[in-house]
């Protein structure tokens, strides 16, 4: 068990212990989001770990100096050009591009994670509210199969594996997590909540249902990172969340602490400063006092 103490005060990884609860900022590698390259060196000052998706992690040239959560990249199954197939009883994601077809097998994900990750997540397939119940049930089944396969095939014992749960309502999420009963997962990660966040009460019911099935394991929620929601989730027993909202907002010239402000033509350095400020707010970390002049009173938005 990678969790110390009854209340899961920390999660031990190969690159250090993560105190819980934790806000885990998402980062990417490659050329698509250049702001991430600016923000990344500062993550160790403001966060205990970073989340990177399998797709972007493959483009990683230099590892950030903090524990790395590596997600499976299963969210790509929501794209129009993606298909979820069952191969040998496991869920495989097939993505077509103009030039080629790419197949993502749970084995690809786990092998990569064992090389680079400090915390791994099984390959899951989100079930959006508009999806047919048949396809929903199929995806749920494959999500469970992939998680079981991952825990059975794990070789690195110092890499916690979180089993992903998906569903379309409270009962289906509960049913999914019940399928992991007795298996040596190090934590549970709830996915598919982003399109359901408009109904926070429902989200909390799902969290409560999952928590009821696994009361003693760390609980992670994917993609919900707005400060107000994070606080509520932590109160409801969630141990960690990940989100890219801090950096998306900054790229849009926005500051969490100042909802009406929007900098129309933020420069790269201004976006960096906004992102760090957003992250500090979300992670409830203090920036050094010397930055207050730049971040909070620079009258950026008064131009």
């Amino acid at each position: 068990m990678m969790v110390s103490g009854k209340l899961h005060t920390s999660l031990n990884t190969a690159h250090g212990a993560i105190r819980l609860p934790a806000y885990v900022p998402v980062t990417t590698f490659g050329a698509k989001y250049p702001l991430d390259d600016l923000v990344r060196p500062y993550l160790p000052r403001l966060a205990q770990a970073a989340m990177v998706s399998f797709h972007y992690a493959r483009q990683m040239t230099e590892r950030p100096a903090l524990p790395l959560f590596v997600d499976s990249g299963g969210f790509a199954s929501l794209f129009q050009n993606a298909t979820v197939l069952m191969v040998g009883g496991l869920g495989v994601l097939k993505t077509k591009t103009e030039a080629s077809t790419e197949t993502l097998h749970p084995r690809d994900v786990l092998e990569f994670q064992e090389k680079h990750a400090d915390v791994a997540f099984s390959l899951d397939f989100p079930i959006p509210p508009s999806m047919s119940s048949h396809e929903g049930r199929r995806r749920l089944g494959l999500t469970v199969a992939n998680a079981r396969w991952a825990i059975e095939n794990r070789r690195r014992k110092d890499m916690p594996i979180f089993a992903c749960v998906q569903g379309w309502d409270v009962d289906s999420y509960a049913q999914c997590v019940e399928a992991y009963a007795g298996l040596p997962f190090d934590g549970i990660a709830i996915g598919g909540l982003v399109p359901r966040v408009h109904d926070l009460a429902n989200v909390l019911r799902i969290v409560k249902a999952v928590r009821a099935v696994v009361p003693n394991k760390p609980l992670h929620v994917f993609g919900l990172g707005k400060p107000g929601i994070v606080e509520v989730l932590f109160k409801h027993g969630v141990h960690s969340v990940d989100s890219s909202s801090y950096v998306k907002l900054a790229a849009d010239g926005r500051l969490w602490g100042h909802p009406t402000m929007k900098l129309e033509d933020a420069s790269p350095a201004e976006r960096l400063n906004l992102a760090l400020c957003n992250l500090a707010t979300a992670a409830q970390r203090a920036l050094p006092l010397s930055t207050s002049h730049l971040l909070f009173s620079s009258r950026l938005w008064e131009q």
């Binding site: 000052r45 350095a269 960096l272 400063n273 920036l287 010397s290």
Partner: peptide, 12 residues
């Protein structure tokens, strides 16, 4: 001016 914007954690 530039180094402070590039590294807001900097103490001078």
């Amino acid at each position: 001016l530039r180094v402070r914007r590039l590294n807001p954690f900097l103490q001078i």
